[in-house]
Amino acid sequence: MKVVVTGGAGFIGANLCRELARRGAEVLVLDDLSTGRRANLDGLDVELRVQSVLDRDAVVYACAGADTVVHLAAVPSVTRSLMNPRHSHDVNVTGSLEVLEAACAAGAHVVLASSSSVYGRNPALPKSEEMACVPVSPYASGKLAAESYALSFQHCFDLPCTVFRFFNVFGPLQLPDHPYAAVIPTFIWSALRGQPLTVFGDGEQTRDFTFVDSVVGVLADSVLRSVSCTRPVNLAFGTRTSLNDVVALLSALLGRKLEVARRPQRAGDVRHSQASGTSLRRLFPQARPVSLEMALSRTIEWVERLVRTENEAARSSV
């Protein structure tokens, strides 16, 4: 089976490539390395093409002969979309359209990554796929547009696809040391370097944090079984944890009380997020979450290696 993974050198993509290769798939990665890293694919028997999803010829060439295309390539940040809405739209919407057209021409099955951010201002919990989406950022609007394109291609052109709405995925390979980093790796990075953990708002905002291994297990199963669905599917397990609770868990795991620096709430942030897992359980009854405590422990181990590498590099430069 040939599987194309756009954004495959990124955090979720590289973890997925490792799982697909382990299961015997032939994997081709299309990634412009704007956020992904070659090093994430070290040791994997995959082909990497450093090209953009906005390059139509490159996308068509990559998708030729593919059985499945997993579309993960994106500008993955609400904050980035606020800084540059046009670029976010170009990659997340136009790039998705390029991938869908190429996959359709190749007769491939598509797995497309969307986001829980599409629910936006809708206050109802848990977030069910049937509820109205009220996006509050350009990033969320772009993700909603991309998933709408995918489902319309399924309806109009018989393109088999599954659209997954990711909920705050975290784990190894997720870089913590840049301005747009996700909250959990950023917390751990700061804690291990003896710095305060920055919390925007009161810290009582909640998220359905999902460990990357759980996510890639479902994605790989979707690829290998060619699962398709006529509506989006939440890829999370219905948990709800506040940022303050995450700080407390990290304090317990690291054996010391962590200092917190409070900052004003950011524009575009959603107050509460929690998935309804009904569709996921129906389509993937074997899927099981990794406990938050175990997932945090494994992420701490990975970030500790990054900190050690940084410290060794600093010592060698003296």
Results as ranks from 00 to 15, higher is better:
262 R>C: 00
35 T>W: 02
207 R>C: 03
234 N>F: 05
108 A>P: 00
31 D>P: 00
25 A>M: 07
274 Q>E: 13
226 S>F: 04
116 S>M: 13
50 V>L: 03
296 L>Y: 13
127 K>C: 14
181 A>I: 00
106 A>N: 02
11 F>G: 01
258 L>G: 08
247 V>K: 07
141 S>C: 15
40 N>R: 03
97 L>F: 11
159 L>G: 06
71 H>E: 04
272 H>G: 06
292 L>D: 10
39 A>E: 12
59 V>E: 10
180 Y>N: 13
302 W>M: 02
16 L>Q: 02
55 D>Q: 07
238 G>E: 05
130 E>G: 15
88 S>P: 01
285 P>W: 10
30 L>I: 04
197 L>C: 11
26 E>Q: 11
240 R>N: 10
298 R>P: 00
243 L>P: 00
52 S>T: 09
191 A>W: 03
99 V>D: 08
235 L>K: 04
165 R>H: 05
1 M>G: 12
146 A>C: 03
109 H>G: 06
80 R>G: 12
76 P>K: 09
66 A>G: 08
192 L>G: 13
275 A>G: 14
150 A>R: 12
130 E>M: 13
261 A>L: 14
145 A>S: 14
5 V>L: 04
249 L>F: 04
290 V>K: 04
231 R>D: 05
14 A>E: 01
210 T>A: 06
48 L>K: 00
194 G>K: 02
188 I>R: 05
312 E>N: 13
120 G>P: 02
66 A>H: 07
204 E>Y: 08
233 V>W: 10
1 M>L: 06
233 V>G: 05
132 A>F: 01
147 E>S: 09
149 Y>E: 13
250 L>G: 07
119 Y>E: 03
199 V>I: 12
13 G>P: 01
31 D>E: 01
101 E>G: 05
107 G>W: 12
131 M>C: 10
299 T>W: 04
291 S>C: 03
108 A>N: 03
95 G>A: 07
300 I>N: 10
289 P>R: 09
206 T>V: 09
169 V>L: 05
146 A>E: 02
238 G>S: 10
84 N>V: 00
75 V>K: 09
232 P>E: 10
233 V>S: 06
